[in-house]
Amino acid sequence: MENQPEDSSHVMARVLDSLAVGVFTVDDDWNIRFFNTEAERLTGVCREEALGRKCYQVFHTRD
């Protein structure tokens, strides 16, 4: 089978996931769209639980 190039979003996700700092991204409505391994470790929230939720639901803030 021939190797196909990864699309840039997958490459960026792999790079961000390898960082030793917590990184997450949100959309215009403050829904979490990316949550790296270090963010999981720092917050105690698994990626699957964080993705798609509002920031305040994960980080327990009022705004």
Rank of each mutant, 00 (worst) to 15 (best):
F34G: 11
D17W: 01
M12P: 00
L51Q: 11
N3P: 14
V15F: 14
L16A: 08
C46A: 15
L16V: 08
C46G: 09
R14I: 09
S18A: 15
R14S: 15
H10A: 13
R47Q: 14
V26W: 07
L16E: 05
L42Q: 04
W30L: 07
L42G: 00
D29R: 09
E49G: 03
V45L: 13
R53D: 07
E48V: 01
L16W: 02
F34Y: 12
T25H: 03
S9P: 00
F24T: 05
E6M: 02
E6P: 07
A20K: 09
L51T: 06
D28L: 13
D27K: 03
F24Y: 15
F35P: 00
D17Q: 10
V45Y: 12
V11H: 02
F35L: 03
A39Q: 04
W30M: 11
E38W: 01
D17T: 10
D7V: 06
I32E: 00
E6H: 11
L42N: 01
D29G: 08
N31F: 08
A50L: 07
R41T: 12
D27L: 05
R33P: 01
H10M: 06
A39R: 02
S18D: 10
R53Q: 11
G44D: 12
M12I: 15
V15C: 04
E48M: 04
G52V: 06
D7F: 07
V26G: 02
E40Y: 04
R47G: 01
P5R: 10
R33V: 07
L16G: 00
V15N: 05
A13R: 14
A39F: 00
R53F: 09
E38F: 02
T43A: 02
H10V: 05
A39G: 01
V11M: 04
T37Y: 04
R53P: 04
E49H: 10
E6V: 04
S8I: 14
